[in-house]
């Protein structure tokens, strides 16, 4: 802006960069009037997304999810607990979400990101209320022992749409999960039945569940975050977009097309019914994309 010098490409590049830093909102508005975003996406297009199941060797189920450069690593470890008296034939899921200092310049050691507990709570609400997993399937011996699934999600690279990526990695990790086969030992504790079953002691102890098994996963919850600015709706915002345009709407639908949650945490833009409807229909399209990505990634994993 101002004195635009045209002394070669390099200097004009510098000018744009300075403009972007000094007047971020105007920089974006100039793009929005042209219906394009600085990363060359149309307003309603999501970034490239990929899922890699089985990324963590030490876990019972794991997945790495990437949306653009936002990266989430989810891992599930199964431990045994005594079920509560209220629900003797149900296991449980404990969700933890971490933003280690490596993921973003705003997180420093000892000073956790404000966002992290919010996302953790949203994730745990979404996973438990969506009915994706029947907690009864996590029971081992009714009233005596049940599985506690520890789901730990690490944000490795934070660049917007953190909840979407975290949820995607979580559902992929649950799809990848294999519940280990266990048997009772003399002390009344459960131990894993080794796959070769070479230990003689394992053979006689009647295995509590005979095979490693998968969970049955009914309708998967998936989400899309949109940023609102004036009349514009931007799907799948980057970190920069989220920090400049502060109003966001996160919609969670499941694959049976039911609404799980709709989250609009305030912000300067008041959403009209029309824009909320628009967000929901964008989410519906996005979920079809995500389902294909998920099934492709699991298909290619099975081939290997």
């Amino acid at each position: 802006m101002g004195a635009q010098k045209n002394t070669g490409d390099w200097s004009s590049d510098m000018e744009i960069d300075a403009f972007r830093r000094l007047f971020p909102l105007r920089f974006y508005e100039r793009h929005l009037t042209e219906a394009i975003r600085p990363d060359a996406r149309p307003l309603k297009k999501c970034r490239d997304t990929s899922v890699a199941p089985g990324a963590v060797a030490t876990a019972d189920g794991s997945a790495l999810a990437k949306i653009g450069s936002t990266t989430m690593l989810a891992s599930i470890k199964m431990e045994v607990m005594t079920p509560s008296v209220d629900s003797p034939d149900e296991g449980n899921i404990a969700v933890e979400y971490y933003m280690p200092p490596i993921c973003s310049p705003i997180v420093r050691p000892g000073r956790p990101a404000e966002l992290a507990p919010v996302i953790a709570k949203q994730l745990s609400n979404t996973l438990l209320s969506s009915g994706m997993i029947d907690l009864k399937e996590l029971s081992i011996i009714s009233g005596k022992a049940a599985w506690m699934a520890y789901l730990d999600i690490y944000c490795l690279d934070a660049d917007g749409a953190l909840f979407d990526a975290a949820l995607l990695s979580a559902v992929a990790a649950f799809s990848h999960l294999n519940i280990p086969a266990v048997s009772l030992n003399d002390e009344g504790k459960l131990t894993i039945v080794s796959e070769e079953s070479n230990g003689e002691e394992n053979v006689e102890k009647e295995p509590v569940n005979r095979d490693r098994r998968k969970l049955t996963i009914s309708s998967i919850p998936l989400s899309l975050t949109c940023v609102l600015h004036k009349n514009y709706i931007l799907a799948d915002p980057t970190g920069e977009e989220e920090s400049i345009m502060e109003t966001s709407i996160t919609t969670v639908l499941n694959t049976s097309d039911q609404l799980i949650s709709l989250y609009k945490p305030g912000g300067p833009v008041l959403a009209s019914t029309a824009s909320i409807k628009e967000c929901v229909s964008l989410t519906r399209q996005r979920i079809k994309e995500l389902q294909d990505i998920l099934s492709d990634s699991f298909a290619s994993m099975d081939m290997n």
Binding site: K77, M78, E79, V80, M81, T82, I141, K144, M148, Y150, P180, V182, L184, G188, K189, L190, T191, I192, S194, G199
Partner: peptide, 19 residues
Amino acid sequence: MAGKPNDAPATYSPSLKNK
């Protein structure tokens, strides 16, 4: 099974102890 202490850690990993 009856002798399972209640004040034990809430959960435990069922991995094989015998090396």
